[in-house]
Write a protein that binds this DNA or RNA. Structure first.
Lengths: 200, 200
DNA sequence: GACATATGGATCAAAAATGTCTAATCGTCT
DNA sequence: AGACGATTAGACATTTTTGATCCATATGTC
């Protein structure tokens, strides 16, 4: 797993900035080979097609990002701070690196078209991680969901949906950060444990 | 000349950032048409080919830059300050806008291949402007070339050559600025009028 | 309606990209 | 030196894209 992985990793490391700069369509295998400083023939020794190469790159980017997301949720801090950090990691890992916004659309479309399973699985994983985090926070009495009459699963789905909506309307930038912070503040108030309720 | 010019100008304005982003080769007429928000067919109503379009863009960029260069030399100030400003205008006008350095090479090569006359004429013009400025400075006794035993024409050629050399070795950036300033300081010392020599 | 201009789409040849293959080269090991 | 696997340059057929032209239609102006 060492040799082949390091080989493909080197290629993918070189390919990412090329895809970012030119987008999937305008990027040629010759471009990637040149960036990786190998021959075009060698490229096809590791990847059978441009699609496969892109899928591998997308998969690795998602994988790395989800590791960051999990790490953010595992760090100490309030549930809201951890969720904010996790969401930020998710956004920055899968969107911010994809450049100036020019090719971001095209790359995003390519990712959803050529590797829909990967993007989908990442969203599912994010949801699961949020559900776990929220459930534990509820168990620890850090938050109280009885007032909202919902469960951790539903709340996590709401968080993800809101995140997508905020991203879609505010775009990617400082406004997005503000939108998320506002939403988290709202959430904090809405899930605040009621004083003197359940102290056994 | 107003309608067609404004039309072609609009197209060239839209085309420039596309060329900058993707380089000449990767830029398609469809890209330019999309950026200019017109149809491909309309593009060919104004320009007979991609080359012709690029040539027109290059010509306009050079023209604008040379206007800036001349303005810099016509402003008040010492001959050294004015030459420094002129050279900076020349560099920034024809190189800096051409992006992150990735496509700069490719665009520069395309310019020299598809419109060598334009780039060449700009260099000739720059030389002429420098010769004129240096000649007048010599006439005004701001500089003295007798010590170096050269004429304004030769000195101007040296300045251009040095500028190219500095750019080539230092690259485009803050180092280039420093190189030019150092060279100018050297020039200032070398051409300083000798005290009490020629006061009629 | 007459007129000029812009557009989408069809079309064709030329250029480029993908993916495959082979012979040659390189580096390493014994 | 010779053997071996990995890497490469380059040729190749195939598919896709692009450049460029043409036309029939729309859009708006006089």
């Amino acid at each position: 797993m060492n040799e082949t992985d390091s080989k493909t990793d080197l290629i993918l490391d070189a390919a990412l900035p090329v895809f970012v700069r030119f987008g999937f369509r305008k990027t040629t295998m010759a471009d990637i080979a040149r960036a990786a400083k190998i021959s075009r023939a060698s490229l096809y020794l590791c990847f059978n097609s441009k699609e496969e190469l892109f899928r591998a790159g997308s998969k690795r980017a998602h994988s790395r990002t989800m590791n960051d997301v999990k790490a953010a949720l595992d760090r100490p801090g309030s549930i809201f701070d951890r969720m904010t950090a996790a969401i930020r990691a998710f956004q920055e890992g899968l969107i911010a690196p994809f450049g100036d916004g020019h090719n971001a659309e095209e790359l995003f479309a390519a990712s959803n078209e050529l590797a829909p399973d990967i993007a989908l699985e990442a969203r599912t994983r994010l949801l699961d991680l949020l559900i776990t985090a929220l459930s534990e926070a509820e168990k620890n009495r850090e938050i109280d969901l009885t007032a909202l009459q919902i469960q951790a699963t539903e709340l996590a789905a709401l968080v993800v949906a809101a995140m997508n909506g905020i991203k879609h309307t505010h775009g990617a930038g400082p406004e997005l950060e503000g939108g998320i912070r506002l939403f988290m503040a709202l959430l904090k108030v809405g899930t605040a444990p009621q004083l003197g309720q359940a102290a056994p």
